[in-house]
Design a protein around this nucleic acid. Structure first.
Lengths: 167, 167
DNA sequence: CTAAACTTTCAATAATTATTGAAATAAAAA
DNA sequence: TTTTTATTTCAATAATTATTGAAAGTTTAG
């Protein structure tokens, strides 16, 4: 396989996988493109490579910047903005985890807490509260594990995790 | 807050949260309904409560059964099928993790492995391979952690995890 | 200041994904 | 067997989500 072909396949595949994670295709493709690009790219560069509109590039690049996985870079003698993706993949994972935790976990905890206020002492009510408590408990566990992963160092995390599990 | 109101809010909220996780709204609502229902529900029961069509109920109940988080139940003297959700939330979490791992992680590993075949020893090619290796490494780490979580017991997992992190 | 270069916004439209409902299929009762 | 009851399928349609492209807004250079 040729390099360009491989890079292209990576960009395309990333885009299609992303849709099954609730992440927009173009956002994933733009990130993939920047990740495998040797030099910073301008909006034009992205438009031409991915064959998408200016507006689309702008929106998705902003989203990537908001997620903290892409940043602006200035190129001497150029007026326009250029963009780069952070090449540290562990950092990337931590940022994505942080964002998904915010989108997927935190709202759940909020709702569950609110629902606990239900005032009903029938058997049915008790059973419902049990479900809520169990949901909170599991969600909190996951939340704590993610919090720790966000703080951890990759190799340290994996080796310790494996060690503890194998005990 | 009244019990019915709370249950309803739970069902609605779960549906809308699910869409931000790449899970279809109705599927999440049907699951939520079954989870807080004291008795098994038939397709009719689900249709009436959620005000959705028979076809929609059928498709989403099948999907929940495929995910292993809902099962059929027979009610004496009734010809139609009834459905229940497993009330063990930790089991639920493990099943969901297993499914999401299959959808979100495993295809990534496959693609990355395939792309490693790229034949290019320029500096650019090497940098690309480095990115692929790093992506594989992180993805494998996550995959292993999830595998272990799927096997683990809730309290044991959390307490050990917290312990190791605090060290 | 004005003009040119570049970025952002957002209404219109396209593409994707979910839902309906009725017809086809299947299973149980009469 | 035939009839009744229940389930599944899937083309048509609705709802949602993403994308375009042109106009408005911003910034920098002259």
């Amino acid at each position: 396989m040729k390099l360009d072909e491989a890079k292209n396949k990576y960009i395309q595949t990333w885009g299609s996988l992303a849709t099954s994670w609730g992440i927009n295709k173009t956002m994933a493709q733009v990130h993939a493109l920047l990740l495998v690009s040797i030099k910073p790219l301008s909006a034009e560069g992205i438009m031409e490579t991915l064959k998408i509109s200016r507006g689309n590039v702008n929106m998705n690049v902003r989203a990537l910047i908001d997620w903290g996985i892409v940043s602006k870079e200035f190129v001497v003698g150029e007026r326009k903005e250029f963009f780069v993706a952070d090449k540290d993949i562990w950092e990337l994972f931590k940022q994505i985890t942080k964002e998904r935790k915010k989108r997927e976990i935190e709202p759940v905890l909020k709702v569950l807490e609110d629902l606990q206020k239900v005032d009903d002492n029938t058997e049915d009510g008790m059973q419902f509260k049990k479900v809520l408590t169990d949901l909170s408990s599991v969600t909190n566990t996951v939340n704590n594990i993610l919090d720790n992963a966000i703080k951890a160092d990759e190799h340290w995390l994996l080796s310790n995790f494996t060690k503890i599990i194998k005990k």
